[in-house]
Simulated assay, not measured.
Amino acid sequence: MSTDTLGNSTRAHTPTGASAAPRLRKRLKSRPNPAVTVGAVIGALIWVTPLILLVISALRPLSDFLSNGPVSWPSEFTLANFPEAWEAGQFGTAYLNSTFLLLVKVPLGVFVAALLAYALAKLEFPFRNVILFTVVLGMTIPIYIAIVPLFTMLRNVGMTDSIVGIIPAYVAFGLPLQVLILQAFFRRVPSELIEAARIDGAGDLRIFFRLIIPLSIPALVTVAILDGVATWNELFLALSLLSSEGNRTIPLGLLNFQGQFATNYTGLAAGILIAVVPILLLYTLLQKYIVGGLTAGATKG
């Protein structure tokens, strides 16, 4: 009788003791670390402070900005800076040009980069590694070194001062980073899937469009977002290759706030907000795809 009682007691207490340890570890892990929390808050404040100052500067009169300085609370707020900034920066034309570049250049660049990355990652051909090294080497070449030969080539074909003419240059300078990201992702796609498709009679193009593209949506969206942000903010090539008022892009519009002897700081702040708000909203809405695209390649295969 006592033996049965002891056995029942042992069986009753063993699961409880075994389950108590994971619960204890879970409670310990769930406790926030004060140092990490404080560090994260400080880092977030440092990161968001310039944006807060930018918004405050855009909402204050220029006289108040010049009298009290940028790091001060405004004596009054105004929205007059925004319509003035829109007119001064000619953002109506600039928005159309930048949107055209965004809608044409980004899909074209991602498509070309995906084709090249797939070939470098999954196809066997001579000098594949040499070609990959050459493409990635383009990331180390500063744009200003290539601006003279680029301008000469575009002038010879009559494509200077043209929104369409600047697209090939944008695509070329965006390829290295895009190919680097996409080929690393494509390498982790199981080769067995490709071999099975080949056995079923699929060619390389069919495999690319029917297999690789659907599996690579997170990486493609990530590359498209990063390329879109870079295209929207690009200044040097646009400043060097575009000269007429009708071909100005968003960054070129911001240059209108800089005069020879003075700068309209509050108007510039409003212009910067006008320029960056669309891309900030896009980035905020699609940031989960950026995280997923950058981490999916590390977990596939």
Rank of each mutant, 00 (worst) to 15 (best):
S75P: 14
R27C: 01
T295D: 04
S191R: 02
A18T: 07
A85I: 13
Q183K: 05
F91L: 07
A114D: 00
V71W: 12
I46D: 07
I225A: 14
I250A: 03
P214Y: 09
T295V: 10
L252H: 04
T3P: 13
P142Y: 07
R206E: 01
F91C: 09
L294Q: 08
F208P: 01
T49I: 12
K105N: 14
L115A: 06
S216A: 14
G203K: 11
L220I: 00
T3Q: 15
A114Y: 02
A197T: 04
A113D: 04
P32M: 05
R60L: 10
I147A: 03
A298I: 02
T152M: 01
A113P: 13
L286K: 02
R155E: 04
P61Y: 05
L102V: 07
I279T: 07
A85L: 03
A88E: 04
Y170E: 15
E87I: 02
A12H: 14
A296M: 08
T284S: 12
L211D: 06
A197P: 08
D64Q: 13
F77A: 06
L282P: 02
N33S: 08
Y170F: 14
L252P: 04
A21Q: 09
K122G: 08
P168N: 06
L101G: 05
Y289M: 08
L239E: 10
A146E: 03
N81H: 05
I52P: 13
L150K: 09
S75A: 15
I225N: 09
F151I: 00
I199C: 14
S63I: 11
V171N: 13
I42F: 15
N247F: 03
L51V: 09
K288Y: 11
F65D: 08
P251Y: 04
P251T: 02
V36W: 08
S2I: 15
L215Y: 07
A202N: 00
Q183P: 11
W47R: 09
G201L: 04
K29E: 13
S191I: 10
L6P: 02
Q287R: 14
Y265C: 10
L59W: 04
I274V: 10
S244G: 00
T263A: 11
T160A: 01
G69V: 10
M153T: 10
A44Y: 14
D4P: 11
L24Y: 02
G203Q: 06
G297L: 05
P278Y: 07
T37R: 13
I143M: 01
F127S: 12
V164Y: 07
S19E: 11
E124P: 03
S191W: 12
F257R: 08
T14A: 15
V38K: 01
L237N: 10
F91Q: 00
P149E: 06
I141L: 14
A172V: 02
T299F: 09
G271E: 01
F185H: 08
A298D: 14
L62V: 15
S2G: 12
